[in-house]
Design a protein around this nucleic acid. Structure first.
Lengths: 347, 347
DNA sequence: CTGAAAGCGCTTACAG
DNA sequence: CTGAAAGCGCTTACAG
């Protein structure tokens, strides 16, 4: 005997009202050709009984689970909270639930995570791939959020343009020598951002790039980045490719007696939760997570409806590149021309 | 006509092998009284066909969805990544999927989030309640992660003991005047931590508590905490109730020329992702998220199995208080007695 | 406008 | 050891 579901079901409502289940179903879904008075009575009775429709029954009948999957490369990623929140909101708005899966570690774990989601019957999924990983289509529609330069990408922030905005901002502050600080030279996102920065430098500016991962391989984890020395060499701006690196740079500079922003500027990317809170607050280029999530989910849902839930397709979106927004919180720099004024956040 | 599910089902496997669906089901689930040779043949054929069992069918029949819910007070919370990762891992290990819900904002939103999960058929859920919110039992088993002093709590880190460890550590470094920095005086977690700190001070130490939320109400967002002045007043240790506040304190001190840890110590809680990365790295008391998640999920699953999925119960655990671990990264302080040595992380 | 009936895919007593 | 059958709760053509 199947375990009883405690709550009332359609049939209970039907018999208790002396009508058929079909009519109850129609009334509740609003699709039906049911007289308004009966429909009203049914709705009332249903809510009185605390009726909650069974997803299982519905899913079995319609073939749609009403659930999407979210696969993260590494859930501990500081960007994750905003992304997950945005995805959850967009999905809920579209009437879907969100099942999470952490593809921590290697590519194998990612594949496993994807399979788990498939087994749970997701109709489609959003994947933020591991660095430089290619998604081999799963057996359901897949939306990929990465960089525009990732093949098969569905939607992404315009990291390149974000980098360009950073460079323009630094140029206006009068900086000449920029140190770009990245973590991983293999990351598509970081490369796009760095490329954008370089492309936005004016003729009299120059940049060098420091990859922390390489440095740490040589000198050990948590080693000094040697930024104070860079200041002595003439660098006045430190453009990190993520706020996490920017924070590391900022605290190291301050520890070594470099006053920010008076002696050097520090910029980041992503507008992580603490970026506005530290002193001085970080100038940063932020993704519009809400919009990105909306586009990803909307395209995903459209594809699901067009192709059916169980076909493996890489989803494409009309807009695949969402502009990044520069948030200026350090509005002066070592060489800021006095006549320039900037829009800052807290004023 | 119900929309066809593309993949093979039990019946397809059965007919193609000339056996009954019951036998296939039994063979695949391993429960059956099926001869090993037949079972092996069936398993082989199933995997050949790429058979993926239908959760919907199973759920409808058994009354269990195989899914748990995770309700977060504010998904953008910096603690969330570690928690979600730990929960996802524990749930996956227990054979469950995890549906997320963000109860951003008010209590009403929290209730709504809970209802959404119920509608999706979760068998139980883990809730991290909003500050000082009481969970009125939903119509399924609920495990609550908060403070031990929260009524109806299932499992929590021992925030009080964490605070005590921080105090002991500061005492050993020779600090006499401690400024405790919190965000919200209404938070159970923060109050437990602060209480622990105070309880761990020795007779010749004294502490004052600064609540940022109150300060900002008076002076505006992003206002200075005035910590440099506190240093001049004789405070040498700043014990923040979360790494986020610790970071704010650290950067403000550094900006104002206070060298950390030579002139003042800064400690935090939670070991957030950037805590080891900044300069100087933060001394902090960390929760064992893995263990907390494990206990929460295990107790939840046990309760589900005991009471059935659709009963509203507040889950209790055998161990409801998990010790916090002190991670010492600033091993010296302004007044550190030379003869003391500390275990530090990077050495 | 309303109802009887079929069937989505699965599991589980029960009979053989 | 294997199979026939019932039924979980729902939706949807179809008939009335």
């Amino acid at each position: 005997m199947p375990s009883a579901r405690p709550g009332p079901n359609l049939s209970r409502i039907a018999t208790s009202l002396g009508v058929s289940v079909a009519t109850v179903s129609n009334a509740l879904s609003g699709k039906g050709r049911v007289s308004e008075s009966l429909a009203e009575k049914i709705r009332e009775h249903a809510s009185e009984l605390g009726y909650v429709p069974s997803q299982a029954g519905r899913a079995l009948r319609t073939g749609r689970s009403g659930v999407l999957g979210l696969v993260l490369p590494d859930i501990a990623n500081p960007l994750f909270p905003k992304l997950a929140q945005a995805i959850e909101f967009a999905a809920t708005t579209a009437g879907y639930g969100v099942l999470i899966a952490d593809s921590r570690g290697d590519v194998a774990a990612q594949t496993e995570a994807i399979n788990r989601l498939i087994e749970r019957g997701v109709e489609g999924m959003v994947i933020v791939p591991r660095r430089a990983t290619r998604i081999s289509a799963a057996s359901c529609p897949v939306a990929v959020i990465d960089t525009a330069s990732t093949p098969g990408n569905t939607v992404a922030a315009d990291h390149w343009q974000g980098g360009r905005d950073i460079a323009t901002h630094l140029a206006e502050l009068g900086h000449k020598r920029i140190l770009i600080i990245g973590n991983n030279p293999e990351s598509n996102v970081q490369n796009d951002r760095a490329g954008g920065i370089r492309s936005g430098l004016t003729g009299d500016m120059q940049s060098t790039t420091l990859w922390i991962e390489r440095l740490e391989r040589d000198q050990g984890n948590g080693c000094s980045l040697g930024l104070a020395e860079k200041v002595r060499e003439g660098y006045t701006a430190f453009a990190a490719l993520s706020d996490l690196q920017a924070l590391r740079a900022l605290t190291e500079l301050q520890r070594d007696g470099i006053v920010v922003p008076d002696m050097a500027s520090v910029t980041g990317f992503d507008d992580l939760i603490w970026s506005p809170v530290i002193t001085p607050a970080l100038t940063t280029a932020a993704m519009d997570m809400r919009l990105i999530a909306e586009i990803a989910i909307e395209s995903l849902v459209r594809t699901i409806q067009a192709t059916g839930p169980r076909e493996g397709v890489l989803v494409t979106a009309e807009t695949d590149r969402v502009p990044m927004q520069l948030i200026v919180r350090q509005s002066s720099g070592p060489a800021a021309p006095a006549h320039l004024t900037y829009k800052t956040e807290n004023s």
